[in-house]
C-alpha cells in the first residue's frame, strides 16, 4: 500500500516536471497522447469496468465534446467556456441516451450507444463535411505546454473518480449492480440511478477529453472524433490494462501507444488487425488484463516467499 502511494507520487511528479526535463517536443507530444488516450479509456472504464455496462458508442461523447468545444472556441468563445459547453453537451447526451436504455436488461444499452454514435458521425459528416483548420491567429500562439497540463489534469481527475469508486458507498453500490442487478436491488441499491450516474460521469469525462482533442488538433475532419475507432481504442486500452481497475487504463494507454508507434512504422493496416485479435483474446482468455496478471504474479511470489 505505502509502496503504491510512493510509486504513484513519483510518476505524478515526473509527469509534472516532464516539460522541463524533456528537451524535444515529440517526447512531450507522445506523453500527451498517452494521457489523452488514458483519460478517454478511464472514462469508459468508469461505467464499463466498474459498472459493467458496455458502451459501444463512447466516440459519440468524445465527438460531441470536441464538436461543441471546437465550434465555440473558433468563434471567439474563451476556451474554458467552450470546454465547459462541450462537456455539458456530452453529459446531456449521456442522460438522453442513458435514461431509456439503462432501464432495460439485455443488450439495449450497447445497441443504443452504438446507434447514437454512428448516427451522429454520419450526420456530422453530411452536415459539416469540411476540414476544420485553426486560423493563423490561433496558430501563431499555439504551444503544446498548456495542452499537456490540461491533459495531465484531466487524467488525474478521471482517475481520482475511478479511485473514489473503489472506496466509497456509491462505488460499492455500483459494484453490486455490476455483479447482479437483482441482488443489488434486494439489498437496497437502486440499480438504475447507479448506472445512470456512472454513465453521466463517463460521458462527462469523455466529452472533456473530446474538448481537449479539439483544443489540441490543428486540422481534422469534424466527423473524425466520432469515428468508432475511438471507442474501440478506449475498449482495447481498458481491457489490455484491466477493466474495473484504477490503474489498468493508464498502463494500457502507455502500452497501446508504444505498440502502435512500433507497428505503424512498417505495418499500417496490420496494426489494426493485431489490435483486434489481441482484444478478442484478452476478452476471451484473460479478462483481467495486465493489472490482474500483475496481481496474480504478486500474490504468487508472496506465497513462495512465505
Amino acid at each position: 500500500m505505502r509502496g503504491q502511494v510512493v510509486a504513484v507520487s513519483l510518476i505524478a511528479l515526473a509527469l509534472v516536471l516532464l516539460p522541463a526535463l524533456a528537451p524535444r517536443d515529440n517526447v512531450l507530444n507522445w506523453v500527451f497522447l498517452a494521457l489523452l488516450y488514458g483519460a478517454l479509456a478511464q472514462s469508459w472504464n468508469l461505467l464499463g469496468g466498474f459498472g459493467g455496462q458496455v458502451n459501444l458508442g463512447h466516440a459519440a461523447f468524445f465527438g460531441l465534446g470536441s464538436l461543441v468545444t471546437r465550434t465555440l472556441w473558433l468563434n471567439q468563445v474563451p476556451l474554458p467556456l467552450a470546454l465547459v459547453a462541450g462537456t455539458a453537451a456530452a453529459t446531456a447526451m449521456g442522460v438522453i441516451i442513458g435514461a431509456p436504455s439503462l432501464r432495460l436488461r439485455g443488450p439495449y444499452f450497447a445497441i443504443g450507444t452504438l446507434a447514437v454514435a454512428e448516427i451522429l458521425r454520419i450526420t456530422t459528416a453530411n452536415a459539416l463535411p469540411e476540414v476544420s483548420f485553426l486560423p493563423t491567429t490561433y496558430l501563431a500562439g499555439y504551444r503544446l505546454l498548456p495542452r499537456y497540463y490540461l491533459a495531465l489534469g484531466l487524467v488525474s481527475a478521471v482517475t481520482f473518480v475511478a479511485w473514489w469508486l473503489t472506496r466509497s458507498r456509491f462505488g460499492y453500490g455500483l459494484a453490486a449492480v455490476r455483479e447482479d442487478a437483482d441482488v443489488a436491488e434486494a439489498i437496497g441499491v437502486h440499480a438504475f440511478s447507479h448506472k445512470l450516474l456512472a454513465f453521466v460521469l463517463s460521458s462527462l469525462f469523455a466529452g472533456m477529453a473530446g474538448g481537449l482533442f479539439a483544443y489540441y488538433h490543428v486540422s481534422y475532419y469534424l466527423q473524425f472524433p466520432f469515428n468508432p475507432i475511438w471507442t474501440f481504442d478506449a475498449l482495447l486500452i481498458t481491457f489490455l490494462g484491466g477493466a474495473g481497475t484504477v490503474w489498468g487504463p493508464l498502463v494500457g494507454a502507455g502500452f497501446f501507444l508504444l505498440l502502435r508507434e512500433t507497428l505503424a512504422l512498417r505495418l499500417v493496416e496490420l496494426h489494426l488487425l493485431i489490435f483486434g485479435i489481441v482484444f478478442v483474446l484478452v476478452v476471451l482468455v484473460f479478462p483481467g488484463g495486465f493489472v490482474a496478471a500483475w496481481r496474480a504474479l504478486a500474490t504468487r511470489s508472496e506465497r513462495s516467499l512465505q
Binding site: 458496455v54 459501444l56 443488450p107 450497447a110 474501440f232 475498449l235 481491457f239 493496416e269 496490420l270 489494426l272 488487425l273 489490435f275 483486434g276 485479435i277 482484444f279 478478442v280 476478452v283 476471451l284
Partner: peptide
Amino acid sequence: ILIGFGLALILQT
C-alpha cells in the same frame, strides 16, 4: 457484444 466488436475490426481490416 465485446467479442463481436473486436471481430468487426478484424474482419474490416
